[in-house]
């Protein structure tokens, strides 16, 4: 099955599908290189020259796009680091250590898998207002850190590591933390990569929470900032500029994705979904 050649019809279907996937992106790319005036007259102009870099120049010059990009990077990176740290610690604790109420606590954490964001977002907004956390990076990052999935995932991963390793290390006189930090954690690297990439993507794409928590435009993330530009485009900088913003905003995440693509698939194959 694995090595079998693809039927020509299947190849055609795949190529067609790939075309459908790529056409919108190519269209966007073309639009971003057109002057806004030309597009105002006829958006079909995107299929022929002249093309220009003016929209990209405008982004670098006069808009908040760079600030939004930085905010998105900070929030997504903060969320990723936070989730990796908390989930690794908790995963190890649940998988390896004996303490009272361990099972109960683990079940409580698992129940979190079933809680959709919508069930908590409104009261959380009220809570964060009381705590004065809105419009801050911690306020934007904290909600990402409650994901039960990371803990569940890391617990499973730690459980799969043979216990003999622990025993050997403990006999050598290593502390629990040294054991965790020096011996076991390095073994979980593939899981960390997978969890990290998905946390990063989820935080990067989050829309509702930053929409209501970031109250000044210099704290907007890209999703929120672009939405405000997009819904105003009637009398604004124009289609070409918007599309250039979209392309510009996608570049960093595409780079991350391309850089980690092999990693993601390989790591998932090794760890996910048992």
């Amino acid at each position: 099955m694995k090595g079998a050649r693809l039927h020509p019809l299947v190849v055609m279907a795949l190529l067609l599908g790939a075309g459908v996937m790529l056409a919108p992106m190519v269209w966007t790319l073309l639009l971003s290189f057109k002057s806004n005036a030309a597009l105002m007259a006829d958006s079909g102009a995107a299929f022929s020259g002249p093309y220009t870099l003016e929209n990209y120049a405008a982004i670098l010059k006069g808009s908040l796009t760079l600030q939004w990009l930085a905010n998105s990077l900070i929030v997504a990176t903060g969320a990723t680091v936070g989730v990796l740290v908390l989930s690794s610690l908790a995963g190890y604790g649940f998988a390896r250590l004996e303490f009272p109420f361990r099972r109960t606590l683990f079940v409580i954490v698992l129940l979190g898998l079933a809680v959709p964001e919508q069930a908590v977002i409104l009261p959380r907004h009220q809570l964060f207002a009381m705590l004065g956390l809105h419009n801050s990076y911690p306020g934007l990052i904290l909600p990402s850190l409650t994901g039960s999935f990371g803990v569940f995932f890391m617990t499973q991963y730690f459980r799969a590591i043979p216990k003999e390793l622990d025993e050997a290390a403990l006999l050598d006189g290593a502390s629990r933390f040294t054991l965790f930090w020096k011996v076991l954690l390095p073994l979980t690297f593939p899981a960390q990569a997978t969890l990290g990439v998905f946390t990063f993507l989820a935080a990067w794409n989050d829309y509702w929470w930053p929409l209501i928590s970031a109250t000044t435009s210099d704290r907007f993330t890209l999703t929120v900032g672009l939405a405000s530009a997009q819904m105003n485009y009637a009398q604004t900088s124009g289609l070409g500029f918007l599309m250039a913003q979209a392309v510009f905003a996608s570049i960093p995440i595409l780079v991350v994705y391309i850089a980690f693509q092999k990693q993601i698939v390989r790591a998932m194959a090794g760890t996910a979904v048992r």
């Binding site: 964060f128 207002a129 809105h134 419009n135 109250t215 000044t216 939405a227 819904m231």
Partner: peptide, 23 residues
């Protein structure tokens, strides 16, 4: 500091006031 909000921006203003941090 200028916030450009999506028209008409009232849901966002309500969220900002509820967040205790209005413009």
């Amino acid at each position: 500091k200028v916030n450009v909000v999506a028209w008409p921006g009232y849901p966002q203003l309500a969220a900002q006031i509820a967040a205790g941090d209005p413009p």
